[in-house]
Design a protein around this nucleic acid. Structure first.
Length: 362
DNA sequence: AATCCGGGGAT
DNA sequence: ATCCCAGGATT
C-alpha cells in the first residue's frame, strides 16, 4: 500500500500517453538491426535474453548466431550434449546460464509440448528465467503487457522521473516494475519495453548521455534540473579478494597435457582447466608433495613462464604458470586425464586458462 | 539482504 | 582503476 502511494507520487504531473507515443515512435525509427529481431520466435527471443544478461549486445551477436546455427530449435537444444552447449558458451561467462537454459528448454519440450509458456507465472518457474527475462520474453515474443526492468530501464526511468532510490536494492526493481505497469503501452508493449532499453543503450547512457538527441528530453526531470549524470543512485560493491595459485602445465612422455573438469556446481562449473595448486596455505616447496597427494603423480617443476591475473566479479585469481613433467606415480583422480591438443580444443575452457594455452610445448 | 557467478568494453 | 552491462540463484 505504501509502494502504491510512492508510485502515484512519482507519476504526479507526468504525461504517460505522450511518453509512450514519443518512445515508441523513436524506437521504431532508430532501433538497431539485430539478429534476434528478425522475427518473434519465442525460442530465439529466449536465447537472446539469456545471453544478454549482464552482457553487451556486441559481445552477444556472434555467440547468438553460432548458437542458433548449432541448436536451431528447442528440440535441438534439448537433445544436445551438455559439453557441446558449454563449448558454444565458451568465453561468454556466467556458464550456469547455459546449463539452466538447457534444463528449462528440456522442461518446455517435455511438460509444455515444446511451446514456450505464455503465462507469466508458468514462464517464471523455468530455470534461469527471473523477473526481467520473464517480462522480456512475454512482451517481445507474445505482445503481452508485462514489465521488463533491467539496468537500462532503471537508469532511464530514474532520470526521467527523478527517482533517487538505490537501484542496487531489490525493492527498487519492484518499484520500477510498478511504475512500468502504469506507463507501459497496452497496444505495443514490445516496442515500449525494447524502446526503454534501446534508449538506455543508445542515448541515455551511464556516463555521458546524449540528451540533445533524446526523444523524451522535454519530459525528463533530471535534464530539467541538470542532474542527469547524478542518476541513477547505486551503492558501490566491495572489491574482489585475491587468491594465489600455481597453474601447472604438466606433459607426459607423449607430449599430452594434464587437464581436469571442474565440479558440476559453483565457479566455472563443468568447464575444463589445468591443475591449479592453491598457494595461500602452501609454500612453493610443498607443491610437489601436495600434488602427489591429490593426483598420485610425481612431478618435476621446470620453468615458470608467466604470471596470469584474472579478474572475476567477486574475486581475482593470481596464477603463476609453471611447466612440469611427470617423473613417476600413477594418475589417480576423478575427472582428470591427459589429452592431446586436438582433444583439448573440443573441451570448454574458461578464458582464465585459455591464457595459458600458448605455453604448451608442441 | 548479501553473496556468488565471467568476461569485456568504455571512461 | 572503476563502472557497468537486456540478471538469476542461493544462502
Amino acid at each position: 500500500m505504501r509502494k502504491k502511494d510512492q508510485v502515484e507520487h512519482i507519476l504526479q504531473g507526468f504525461n504517460p500517453s505522450l511518453f509512450r507515443e514519443r518512445l515508441i515512435d523513436w524506437f521504431k525509427k532508430e532501433q538497431r538491426i539485430l539478429p534476434w529481431r528478425e522475427n518473434q520466435d519465442p525460442y530465439r527471443v529466449w536465447v537472446s535474453e539469456i545471453m544478454l544478461q549482464q552482457t553487451r549486445v556486441d559481445t552477444v551477436i556472434p555467440y547468438f548466431n553460432n548458437f542458433l546455427n548449432k541448436f536451431p530449435t528447442l528440440e535441438a537444444l534439448a537433445e544436445a550434449d551438455e559439453q557441446e552447449v558449454l563449448k558454444a558458451w565458451e568465453g561468454l561467462g556466467y556458464y550456469s546460464r547455459a546449463r539452466n537454459l538447457q534444463n528449462a528448454v528440456r522442461e518446455v519440450v517435455e511438460e509444455y509440448g515444446g511451446v514456450v509458456p505464455k503465462d507469466p507465472a508458468e514462464l517464471g518457474k523455468l530455470k534461469g528465467v527471473g523477473p526481467y527475462t520473464k517480462g522480456a520474453i512475454i512482451s517481445i515474443a507474445y505482445d503481452t503487457a508485462e514489465p521488463a526492468v533491467d539496468g537500462n530501464v532503471m537508469r532511464v526511468l530514474s532520470r526521467i522521473l527523478h527517482v533517487e532510490e538505490d537501484i542496487a536494492k531489490q525493492s527498487t526493481r519492484k518499484l520500477f516494475e510498478e511504475l512500468v505497469r502504469e506507463l507501459i503501452s497496452q497496444e505495443d508493449p514490445s516496442s515500449f519495453n525494447q524502446g526503454l532499453m534501446e534508449l538506455g543503450a543508445l542515448i541515455c547512457t551511464p556516463k555521458t548521455p546524449s540528451c540533445m538527441l533524446c526523444p523524451i528530453q522535454e519530459q525528463c526531470l533530471a535534464f530539467d534540473k541538470g542532474i542527469e549524470t547524478e542518476l541513477p543512485i547505486k551503492s558501490s560493491k566491495k572489491k574482489q579478494k585475491k587468491v594465489p595459485y600455481m597453474l601447472l602445465l604438466i606433459q607426459n612422455e607423449e607430449g599430452e597435457v594434464l587437464v581436469e573438469q571442474r565440479p558440476s556446481q559453483g565457479l566455472l562449473a563443468s568447464l575444463w582447466q589445468f591443475p591449479m595448486v592453491p598457494l595461500s596455505d602452501l609454500d612453493q616447496e610443498a607443491v610437489k608433495h601436495w600434488f602427489y597427494g591429490e593426483y598420485g603423480l610425481h612431478i618435476e617443476l621446470k620453468d615458470s613462464v608467466d604470471q596470469i591475473k584474472h579478474v572475476f566479479s567477486h574475486l581475482i585469481w593470481e596464477m603463476e604458470v609453471v611447466k612440469a613433467r611427470v617423473v613417476g606415480g600413477k594418475l589417480d583422480r576423478e575427472r582428470c586425464r591427459f589429452v592431446d591438443l586436438k582433444e583439448m580444443n573440443d573441451l570448454p575452457f574458461p578464458v582464465s586458462h585459455q591464457k595459458a594455452h600458448k605455453y604448451i610445448s608442441q
